[in-house]
Design a protein around this nucleic acid. Structure first.
Length: 744
DNA sequence: GTATTATCTAAGTCT
DNA sequence: TAGATAATAC
């Protein structure tokens, strides 16, 4: 087998230990994907039926790529049969088969976050609660984390701890919202993202025979990015693996960045308790990045406590220093990025696709986009307001969803009067009241609108029955026509196309084009993979579970990539820009209150750094627009934490400081720590040379450094000082960034 | 019931 | 700043 020869010792062992529990701790860039790929290929080579392999990946794109790589090794007819995908899409598929057992229709709808929030919002209204206190987003995240910990609505009602938490945060009614929300979802035949995992657990818990069936089906389990699994996912895996224990998990505790959605590093740490005779392999050699990048990243991650011991190293070349750049505004930061890309691209004959710009929040993309557009640099953005979340798309999809599942209330509400057909607010309110009064779905009321006394005038009733007939006709057509034909018919016969076509504004035109694009996607979907079922409801599941990283366009080759650090997980680029390195942004303000949140931000920064193969650029800005007003910012603590030995500070920026309107200024709140205040003071007149005397550090002084401890200043030159620390030896420090306290 | 205007509020990361 | 919602006029 020549593919085994392409692996180093640890990788090879991880590939060949096919039987029994295996954990692979894989440092950044250590060939994790390669191990997973070869391991699956190896299994199939050993005559394991691909049908008996379940591989859980973090994005659908990763699954697709891995499948095609495996196909290259062992033949694509085999690899096509592997069950490979994200947790959500794999178990959505399982649930479709088994839905009736847990009281759902097999054509259930998947609610996205917006649907869920809307549903919660209407419940808060129904219960006459204050929507300032019960904000849909916060209620939703509370319910979400309950579900991720397998606490159902009824469990929640009897959970003293959660109830008292809610009471002390002034949200004592939360449990009743949760209860109603569950009921509403069930009545609508809808599952939200968390339900897909929650209900899979319910299914396996309450139907041991079904669990057994899948245990017999999946002889071999592989889980990628294990550090980012939450409790619900952990338990599904554990149950499925219980029979044969042929489970292989791959992860890196240093890259755990999804704590906010319930991911628990403990899952890695407790693997050895669940499977005492497990085999552990550590992949520590980094093949991706230069020495300086690897070591700089190590210098960051070592600030975190409680990690699995490992020593990530590389035999790659030294590489260049990490360049740090300060900007006065976020727009200037964008220009810096654009300019640098332009220059590097010119001198080294690189592709635009060699560059990635990573940021903490999606909102930061705008300034970057603008700068790249101005400089004519092609780019693509992942995430943010994705294509399928645009209003016109959601409207069309709502018709699709309603056709498949008439009880889908969120979709119904979206389209019952769009395009306007004379069923207005008053009517809808009456329907909603009646719906909770009779405990019937709104669709059921609509269907029997003639038989129910709702105090509606006959004109409205006619309009309603026309609407019902329309949707039912789509349903009938669904039986006899392809998904694409149906989609086309729906978009024209509902009047959506006509409505958008008549809007000749640029936005209107682009909305019309977007609808056409959905239809194209649907056509492509219908035409692909003849062996799999390709109905409209399959399409809807695919669309609902697209991840941010999944979008892929043929014409997106050779473009600069813009994405959040989260979305960049698992990817690599020769040149990486990490922008917006400011306190309260990266690390996020909300992470500052707890140590563990801050450590997660630090891991996030670690992930960002380790995406780079050749060079890293860090940048921050002194001011940034937030919510339309200007804010002052301070450099991120993570900059201070990087070992300065790996950093290149630019000579003075040539850019002229723009004038700010005083009124527009809003001060950042909170107490500025002394060091930061000092930094800020230096920053604000840093056009003049930063002299050592600004901080008063002089040769011969005794100083203390936050990390290196006490030391003696040997030499000062400009803004650089040479200091001897008994603990760590001699260090070159930049006074601008080193946290030096003068002792004597 | 519908269209237009004024006001509010959100944006932290993802399925 | 921009999209969502409430208020207002028709």
């Amino acid at each position: 087998m020549n593919y085994l020869e392409e692996l180093n010792d640890a990788q090879r062992k991880a590939v060949e230990s096919t039987e029994g529990p295996v954990m692979v701790i894989a440092g950044a860039g250590s060939g994790k994907t390669r191990v997973l790929t070869y391991r699956i290929a190896h299994l199939i080579n050993k005559k394991v039926d691909p049908f008996n392999i379940l591989a859980l990946t973090f994005t659908n794109k990763a699954a697709k790529e891995m499948k095609s790589r495996i196909g290259n090794i062992i033949g694509s007819s085999e690899s096509a049969n592997i069950w490979m995908g994200t947790f959500h899409s794999i178990f959505a598929r399982v649930l479709r088969f088994e839905a009736s057992l847990i009281g759902y229709p097999s054509n259930f709808t998947i609610y996205d976050t917006q649907d869920s929030r809307n549903a919660i919002k209407s419940i808060v209204k129904e219960l006459n609660l204050d929507d300032k206190i019960y904000k849909p987003s916060s209620v939703y995240s509370r319910i979400s984390s309950a579900k991720n910990n397998l606490i159902g609505a009824d469990d929640y009602l009897q959970h003293p701890e959660l109830i008292s938490q809610d009471e002390s945060s002034g949200k004592s009614q939360l449990r009743y919202i949760y209860k109603r929300y569950s009921e509403k979802c069930k009545r609508s035949g809808a599952m939200d993202f968390d339900d897909l995992l929650f209900n899979t657990n319910i299914l396996f818990r309450d139907h041991p025979n079904i669990l057994l069936k899948y245990q017999h089906k999946f002889h071999y389990l592989l889980v990628d990015e294990y550090q980012d699994t939450n409790y619900a996912q952990y338990l599904i895996i554990k149950k499925l693996a219980a029979l044969r224990e042929n489970i292989c998990v791959v992860g890196d505790d240093a890259q755990s960045i999804y704590g906010f959605r319930g991911a628990d590093i403990q899952n890695i740490l407790s693997f050895k308790n669940d499977y005492p005779d497990y085999k552990l392999f550590k992949l520590e050699q980094n093949y991706r990045s230069t020495k300086r990048i690897v070591e700089a990243a190590n210098s960051i991650i070592e600030k975190n406590k409680g990690q699995i011991k490992k020593n990530v190293w590389t035999s790659n070349e030294e590489g260049e220093l990490i360049k740090l750049v300060r900007n006065f505004t976020d727009n200037e930061e964008g220009l810096f990025v654009a300019q640098s890309i332009f220059e590097i691209n010119n001198e080294d004959k690189n592709q635009f696709s060699d560059f990635a710009v990573l940021y903490r929040t999606n909102a930061q993309s705008r300034a970057l986009e603008e700068a790249l557009r101005k400089t004519n640099i092609p780019y693509k953005i992942y995430g943010g307001l994705s294509f399928y979340q645009r209003k016109e798309i959601k409207d069309l999809l709502a018709y699709f969803r309603l056709t498949i599942n008439h009880n889908d209330e969120e979709s119904l509400m979206r389209v019952i009067n769009y395009p306007a057909r004379g069923i207005g607010k008053t009517t809808i309110e009456k329907l909603q009241v009646a719906s909770s009064e009779y405990n019937k779905s709104i669709w059921e009321l609509l269907e029997n609108i003639g038989a129910i006394e709702l105090n509606l005038n006959s004109g409205t009733k006619t309009k309603i029955s026309e609407f019902v007939t329309l949707i039912k006709s789509f349903r009938t057509m669904h039986e006899s026509h392809s998904a694409f034909e149906l989609g086309e018919h729906i978009s024209s016969s509902t009047g959506i196309l006509r409505e958008l076509y008549s809007d000749k504004s640029p936005e209107g035109v682009s909305r019309y084009d977007n609808i056409q694009e959905v239809l194209n996607a649907l056509k492509e979907f219908t035409d692909s993979n003849f062996d799999e079922e390709k109905s409209l409801s399959d399409f809807l599941i695919d669309v609902a579970l697209l991840t941010d990283a999944d979008q892929d366009n043929e014409d997106d080759l050779n473009k600069v990539t813009l994405m959040t650090v989260h979305a960049a997980k698992g990817l690599e680029f020769p040149y990486v820009f990490i922008v917006g390195l400011e306190e309260n942004l990266f690390p996020s303000q909300m992470a500052l209150s707890s140590r563990s949140d801050l450590e997660e931000e630090r891991r996030l920064f670690y992930v960002a750094l380790t995406r780079a193969k050749k060079r890293v650029f860090l940048s921050y800005s002194n001011t940034r627009y937030k919510w339309g007003s200007l804010n002052q910012c301070e450099p991120s603590r993570f900059i201070d934490e990087l070992d300065p030995a790996f950093l290149e500070f630019p000579s003075q920026n040539k850019i002229v400081k723009p004038e700010f309107q005083r009124e527009g200024f809003r001060r950042t709140t909170g107490n500025t720590p002394p060091i930061r205040r000092k930094l800020k003071a230096i920053d604000s007149h840093s056009q003049t040379n930063v002299s050592s005397s600004a901080q008063g550090v002089k040769t011969g002084m005794e100083v203390e450094h936050e990390r290196f401890g006490k030391g003696k200043v040997l030499h000062v030159e400009g803004d650089k000082a040479t200091v001897f620390f008994p603990n760590v030896g001699q260090k070159q420090l930049l006074l601008k960034f080193a946290r030096l306290t003068i002792l004597k």
